[in-house]
Amino acid sequence: MAESPAAARARRLLALLPFLRRKGLVPLSELAAAVGTDEATVAEDLTVLSLCGGDERDPGQLIGVCVDGDTAEVFADLPALERPVRLTPVEARAVTAALETIGLDPRSPLLARLAVHAQRDVDPESVARSVRAAFRQDGQAAVIAALDVASEHGVVAVIGYASAHSGQESVRRVHPWALHRWRDSWYLVAFCETAQEQRTFRVDRITSVALTHDTFDRPEGLRDASPLPDFDALPRATVVFEEDGPDLNDRDWPGTTFDRRPDGSVVASVPYAGSGWLAGAVASRLGSARVIEPAHLREAVAGAAQRILDETARGSAAGSKD
């Protein structure tokens, strides 16, 4: 059963207590960040806490805290519970699931330390056997952390990026603006100095991050930045699919309109930002889809297929020498 609202609030109030263990002034913003809520909620919670105490018969046992503007003042020692409490099994599972989504290596010492910090009956291995919030993506957490730091300090980063289409690795100077997780993947939205425009990079294709001594200013309004482009502003290609299928939908082909024909084929109008993604998507249908127009995209599809063919030929040639 889900916990009641009163129990949920009590749990949050108890989690706040160790932050009140030292007498003095604490900014509400700091407390709000620590317990993951906003300042108004923290102010309300502190007011409730100021009415709580250990023993009804002893007014000296009340929690000595009051809120003044955007600051909390702690004016008495806590009657108890000033030490942080261990993670319960469900809390340990929540942290593990969240860290899985940034691709933290399962052998990371952080996970081992979190296990020590949890109650004794928490077994990380049994948690992993029942719930998986994401696949393992070793090394990705370090890339995300480096980009987060670069973004926070407005420091230009040099990234190695393996293109999905050519397989070529390029080195780019970027201004890391925002990191997004969408479905299973992380994306970096950045200004690319090399291309002189805003670009979106898949984090699992970033092979290295190095911070420079140069700085940049982050633009405002990034909270709304989406890894999905504005489809109305994009050019469109006409693609014919030999037959309909469950994967011909707006989720797998974002922004696409499908025209289902009596002969069973499907004519699609597909928006595309760069030719690489669409060329790869059509080529990987292995003949059951073809681009009608534009011509440059037809060439890109043929090129994408030819590159994989060349790679396959090289692979077999190398294999036959063994």
């Binding site: 932050f19 993951g36 942080p84 973004s151 982050r218 990034l222």
Partner: peptide
């Protein structure tokens, strides 16, 4: 559960876990 867990870990650690400037809310 994650919110409470992070509060407990922050209370127990010497490092201040601040809000991230760059990371946007995910849509898994």
């Amino acid at each position: 559960d994650l919110r409470i867990a992070l509060a407990k870990l922050t209370a127990a650690s010497d490092v201040r876990v601040r809000a991230s400037a760059a990371v946007m809310p995910a849509l898994s």
